[in-house]
Each structure stands twice: as structure tokens, then as C-alpha cells.
Amino acid sequence: MAVAAPPAPVSDKPAGALAPTLGLLLVTAVWGTTFALIKGVVGRMSVPDFLAVRFVIAAVVMVVMFARPVLRMDRGQLWRALALGALYGVAQLLQTWGLARISPSVSGFATGMYVVFTPLLGWVLLKERTPPATWIAVAVATVGLGLLALHGFELDVGVLLTLASAALYGLHILGLGRWSRKGEAFGMAAVQMVAIAVVCLLATLPRGPSMPPDASAWVSVLYMALAAGALAMLVQTWAQAHMTSTRAAIVMTLEPVFAAGFAIMLGVDVLGWRTVVGGGLMLGAMYIVELGPKRNTHQVL
């Protein structure tokens, strides 16, 4: 999944760089495919087992690829990266537990609420100014979420878990905004991936992780570890160095659209009016936040 980024000063990067935009769009599409795939895998192995195997593989690959940037990090930055990775790991567990209980389409749109949660958390925790557009987005997203998740007067537990994960992703974004440094993206990413793997491994205790049960599950896990994990992180970091943060954020809001599209195409989900209207409202809320007037842009990391 896409992790939106910390508040940063307005960038002077070229806004119309085609290749980076296409690269980031491809990464977003890859992340969108994972919702349906995860839904299939967690039906055959536990959530902690799946995440532990996935992120251990991704962590090993990233540490090998970015060993030098990791070794150049000072001790303080190393601990900050570990803390951020641990936070992200807990968010991954909550999100995947939620996805095991709801449809990939609903999960994709509920996860995308981190775009709305981030400025709200910044307002509560850091006393950052919250523009009126954010409050409008909250109202629109709430209506959309109700259409997607409410059945009578009961709110699905899976949706609540996913919303909790989106809030943690928002905290992760704020932490990156305070602690990330220019030129340390690769090292920070690798260390965070290690922390994510450790958190997921701890969730498998006391017995430890079990391996994927069959070849099909292994293919899905490897795809999500390498293509949607290590490679996607590399392409995303490269793309972010060549495009404005506002443009990147707008591209990243397409993730839930890809998630819903792939789920429907693979027959995992059915396109209904609640998905179309509710998802459209939540996507609209994300765009309101990203395009609304504010002093800082958001960069996806």
C-alpha cells in the first residue's frame, strides 16, 4: 500500500515529468492489486504468518540493496527509523486483519482515509493549521464510508480495524515529516522495513511463522514482497525525486480505485451502487484534501 508522506516545503521539482509520473502510477497500480491477492492468501494462512514472511523477504532484499545508506545513518536517526517502522508494522497488521473481514474494495477506500486523517492528526497533535477544505473532506468521507460500511445500524469490525490502521499511517506520516532528512530515503526505508518485519515476526509468537501452504500462496507472497515491496519502494523513491509532491499525492490517491478495479476484474468483488457512490465520495474527499488550499504540500514516501 501507498504511504503518504510528510508535510514538506513546496518543491521546485518539475511538475510535468512524464517518466516519474508513469513510474509512480505503475507502483500505485501494483499496490492496488495486493488487496485482492492478500484476501486470497489470508484465507489459507494467518495474517501474522503472511506478513512476517512477506516483510522478512522484503527486508533482506532492501538491506542488501541499501547497506551503504544504512551504515551512514547516525544512531539517533536509526532509532527514529526503527520506531517509524514499528508503527507502520502495527498498521499493517490491523489493515490486513481488517481486509480478512471485508471486501478488497471497501478495504482500499477505508485505507485511503489516511489522506484525511493526516491533517486532522497534525491539527490535534502538532497544532498545525487545518484549512476549511479538510473539514469538508471529513464530512464527504464520512458519508462515503457510511455507504460502504454500514449495514443497518452495525459498523463492520473489519472497517473499524482498517480505519485504525489508516490513523496509524497518518501518525507515520507525521513522524516522517519531523524526522526524515534529505538524502537518507533509501537508508530510512530499509531500516523501517526491518522494523516492520520484526513486529510481524513478534505477532507470530510463541510458535513462530508458518510458511505459505502451497505454490500459489508462495507466488503471491513473493510478488508482494518483491514487486509491491522492495521494487515499488525503489521506484517510488526515484519518482519522488523528479516530481512535485502535490503531483505525487494526486497520483497516489488512485490506489483505492485500482484496488476496487482489480478486485472486480478478478471476481473477488462485485460492483454495486454502494461501492460506486461510497467509493466515489471517499475518493473525492481525498482530492479535496490534496487540492485544497494549505501552506504545505504532502509528499508520498
Rank of each mutant, 00 (worst) to 15 (best):
V53E: 02
T162G: 02
R247F: 09
A230R: 09
I102F: 07
R181Y: 06
V27E: 10
A164E: 05
L93K: 13
S105A: 14
L150F: 06
E154W: 07
M252V: 09
T275I: 13
A91S: 15
F35T: 07
T237W: 08
P119Y: 02
A8N: 12
V194R: 13
A29D: 01
M282L: 12
R274N: 07
A203P: 10
L163T: 00
V61C: 08
A239Q: 07
R129W: 06
L283H: 14
V41N: 07
G23N: 07
L121Y: 01
A5Q: 11
A203G: 08
R75P: 09
F117L: 00
A166S: 01
T96S: 15
A197Y: 13
A217R: 10
H151D: 15
G170N: 09
F109E: 07
G187F: 04
P119A: 04
L87S: 09
P14K: 02
W97Y: 14
F262Y: 03
P213E: 00
L271M: 15
H298S: 14
I196N: 04
A91C: 12
M73W: 01
F153C: 02
G261K: 14
V90I: 06
L82K: 10
V276W: 07
A260T: 14
V277P: 10
M188L: 14
T28P: 14
V47G: 12
R181I: 08
R181C: 05
A241R: 15
T130R: 13
T33D: 08
M62I: 06
K39D: 10
L281F: 05
